[in-house]
Computed example of a mutant assay.
Amino acid sequence: MREVRTIAVDPGEDGVRLDRWLRRRWPHLTQIQIQKLARSGQIRVDGGRAKADQRLAAGAMVRVPPLPDAPKPGEGKPALDPRDAAFARSLVLYEDEEVLALNKPSGLAVQGGTKTTRHVDRLLSAWGEGLDRPRLTHRLDRDTSGVLVLGKTPAAAAKLSGAFARRRAEKTYWALVAGAPKPPEGVLELPLVKKGVGDREMVVPAQPKEPGAEPAETEFVTVSRAAQRVTWMALRPHTGRTHQLRAHMLAMGHPILGDPKYGNEASAALSEGLKLQLHARRLTLPHPSRGTLILEAPLSKEMKAGFERFGFDEHEADPEPFRRRRR
C-alpha cells in the first residue's frame, strides 16, 4: 500500500488494540513494523500519536501510512497444504456469514508456539487471509475436544468475544472424573494462581488476596456414575481461567481421567490408555446480529473410549443439565 489512508474503526471493533486492528487488515505486518510506525508518528488516531497497544474506540479515525508490500505468492509463510485445508473444512459444525464453529479435536492446539506448527489458527487460512480470515474468540486446551467459536468479520468477532467477557455465553463441558463427588452438584468458588510446581507450571488453589490469584467459579452436576469408581460430570465454568476445570476437579479430590498434569494416584489407575476425558459439549450464546446460537459437538473418539470403558451412554444426558438446579 503506497498511499496514506484514514479508516474509521467499526462499531464492532470498539476496544480492539491498534496493533491487532492493523494486523486484521494487513496480516503480513510484523509487530516490530507496527511499533516502529507508531513510534515515528506515522500511525495516528484522531490526529494524535498512538501506541501499538492503544485501545481503539468505535468511530475513531486511524491514519495509516504507506505500508510494506505483502510477500509475493511463494514467499513468506508457506501456503496451506490442500489436505490441511480440507481437514479444517471437515471440522465445521456451523457456518454463516458471521460465525464459524468448529469441532476441535483433542491434540490440536488452538494457537502456535514453540515447535507447534499445526494449529487451529494456522488452519484458518483455509477461509482466506486479511479480513476474510476468521478470528478466535475464546480458547480450548490442546487436549480438550469440542465446540470452538470464531468470528468471520471483525465486528462479529468483537461481539462474540464480548459475550464471553460479559458471561453471556453458557458453556457445558462433559468430563469423566475419578470417584463420586459429594455433594453431587453445586458450585465451587476457589481462586486460582499459576505457580511453578516441580519442573512445570501449574494452576493451583490460592488465597483470595494472594499475589496473582484470580477468582474462579465452576458449576457442576452429576450426570451418571459407574458405581463409586467414575462419575460423568457436566461442568460449567462461570469464569475463564487457564486450566480452570482441570484444577478445580483436582482440588475437589476428583480429577479428570486421562490428565497427566492435574491427576492423582486414583485417576492414574483408572486412566490407563485414555486421553484427557474433557469435552466442550455445548455452547449457547447470542448471535452477533440475530437470535441465539446453540452449538453442540459430537463426542470425540477419545471421549467415546472413556464412555465405552465405563458403560456410559451419551443419550442419557439432559441437553441442559444445569436447568434443574435453577428451578
Rank of each mutant, 00 (worst) to 15 (best):
R2M: 02
E3L: 12
V4C: 04
I7W: 14
V9S: 09
R17Q: 09
D19E: 11
R23M: 02
R25L: 01
I34P: 05
A38D: 00
G41R: 03
R49K: 13
Q54F: 00
A57S: 15
M61S: 14
R63L: 13
V64Q: 07
V64H: 12
A70D: 08
E75C: 06
G76Y: 06
K77Q: 12
D84S: 09
S90M: 01
E97R: 14
T114V: 04
H119C: 06
V120W: 10
D121I: 02
R122F: 02
G128E: 08
L131D: 09
D132L: 11
T137G: 10
T137E: 04
G146K: 10
P154T: 14
K159P: 00
L160A: 12
F164D: 06
A165C: 00
A169H: 05
W174R: 13
A180K: 14
P184W: 02
E185Q: 15
E185D: 14
E189M: 04
L190G: 05
P191W: 05
V193C: 11
K194V: 03
G196S: 10
R200K: 15
A206H: 11
P208A: 09
K209R: 14
T222H: 01
A226I: 00
V230P: 11
W232Y: 09
P237C: 07
G240Y: 11
G240H: 12
R246L: 03
L250F: 06
P255D: 07
D259M: 07
P260K: 07
E272S: 13
H279L: 04
P288L: 01
G306A: 02
R309V: 02
R309F: 02
D318P: 03
